Structures are given as structure tokens and as C-alpha cells.
Amino acid sequence: MNMRTSTSTAEKSPMPTGEAVASRAGEPAAGRRRTPSSEMVRRFLGDVALPLGLYYGLRLAGVNQWLALVVSSVVPVVQLIRRLAIERRVSGTTLFTLSITVCSAAVTLLTGDPRLLLARESYFTAILGLWMAGSVPTRRPFVYMATVKLLPEATAREWEAKWEGISGFRRAMRVMTAAWSAAFLLDSVARVVMAYTLPVDLVPVLSAALLIAMLVVVVRLGKVYGKRQLAG
């Protein structure tokens, strides 16, 4: 189960929001762009709540752990297909998600071990963390690129102007991208540990709780840091 996740009016501060995290749905129609908070809720429902509910529903129905994990992991695949249909093109983030999905499917077909299926979630967060780290020294770090796509047009233009003219803003974007990278790498390690040390049925919900807690902490600290950087 791919589990991916803030404030709605943080548009004026350099602040990563919602699942500005991995892949992104196509751009909404003009004048109807999603707010960061609405995107966060949508991502949470589609990428976390639905797969989690499906897994535990199947377990209550008597389905074994391996099959329940496999079936619930179909949800992210459906989400990906939907995004491809909306975008009508293969963007970099979509290609990234597609590659992870294919690798995940390969692991599913090659093993009957539910713990290995649980551990595979760490692949996504590890690669995502490394991808973020790699974007830190580039012209547009991950946090900036991911967040600006969710902002209203006027606010997005303000961010672009800040990026070009304020060195503190650029530094804040890079530092926060590095923080998100570290958080996802730690999440990856924690998922592997949980997958092989805890009861299988406990791992999915704890993994979701870990991801949500991690994102909340990084978002809150990032907002405080960003405001201080611009105020300084």
C-alpha cells in the first residue's frame, strides 16, 4: 500500500504542504486549482485511508495477510492510471511513480512472504528521500517545485519572484528539501524494522501513523523555519 500526506493559508511563507510529496495529478482548470489543504485531504483518502481500509476489511472477511496486502496495493495502481488519464502525458513525477509501481508489482509476483510485501513500502520512501536529496543543489529543489504547483496563480507568481530575488527564500527551500529527504529516509528504515519485528496485521496502520506523524512534524518545523528565514 502506497501511503502517502499543512495548512491551507500558508501560501505566503516558504512552506511545503500536503503531499507536495510524490506524484501529482494534472493541473486543475484555471480558477479552480486545488488548495494545498484540499490536495492533502484528497491524497490522504486515496493513498492512505482507502488502501488501509481495504486491507483490514479483507482481513475481517477472512482473507489471508499476503492476499489482503496484494489486493489493497491495487488501489495505488488505479490512482496512477487515473492520474495518467488526467495528465494525458507522462511527466517526470508520474514516470517516477510508475517505475516504483512496476518494481513493487515484481516483488509481489516473486514472493509469498507478507513481511517482504510490507518491507517493499520502504523502497518508495527511500527512493523518494534520495530523489529529494538530489534536488537540493539543483536550480529548483523538490519542495519549491512541489509546493508551487498547488498554489493559486497569484501566490505562485509571488513565490517565483521570491525565488529569483531573495537568497533567504532559496536557502529555506533547499534546507526544507533536505529535511524532507532525511525524514523519508528515516521513514524507510523504520518501515523495514517494523515489517520484520512487529505482528504483520499491526504494521500497515503503524506505518500510516508513522508517515502522518513525520509529515506533520516536518511541515510544522518547516513553516517556523521558513518564516524566521524571511523575517531575518
Rank of each mutant, 00 (worst) to 15 (best):
E164P: 00
P199N: 10
I212R: 05
M176V: 12
T35Q: 06
P28I: 11
R42K: 14
T111A: 05
T35R: 07
K12C: 05
L45F: 14
L118M: 08
N64P: 05
F142I: 09
A146N: 12
A183W: 04
R140G: 01
R139T: 11
R33Q: 09
R4D: 04
A30Y: 03
P141S: 13
R59Q: 09
I212F: 15
S135F: 01
V148L: 12
V217S: 09
L230A: 06
V216C: 08
D187A: 07
I166D: 14
Q79M: 14
S99M: 13
I100L: 15
L52N: 06
W66M: 03
R170D: 03
A133P: 01
P14Q: 15
A119T: 04
W131C: 06
S99Q: 07
Q229A: 14
S23I: 07
A133Y: 12
T17A: 15
R88H: 07
S13I: 11
V74W: 10
L109I: 06
S181F: 03
V143M: 05
A195L: 10
E27W: 01
L128E: 06
A49F: 14
G92A: 12
S72L: 09
S135W: 01
G165A: 07
S72V: 05
G232F: 06
L54D: 03
L211F: 12
A133N: 02
K12E: 13
Y123Q: 08
I100T: 08
L69Y: 04
R83L: 07
G31E: 10
L109N: 02
P204H: 13
M145K: 15
Y144K: 07
A178S: 01
M145D: 15
S104I: 11
K149P: 02
A29S: 12
L116M: 13
A10W: 03
L210E: 02
Q79K: 11
L128Y: 08
R115E: 07
A119G: 07
V102K: 04
R170K: 11
L210A: 06
G232M: 09
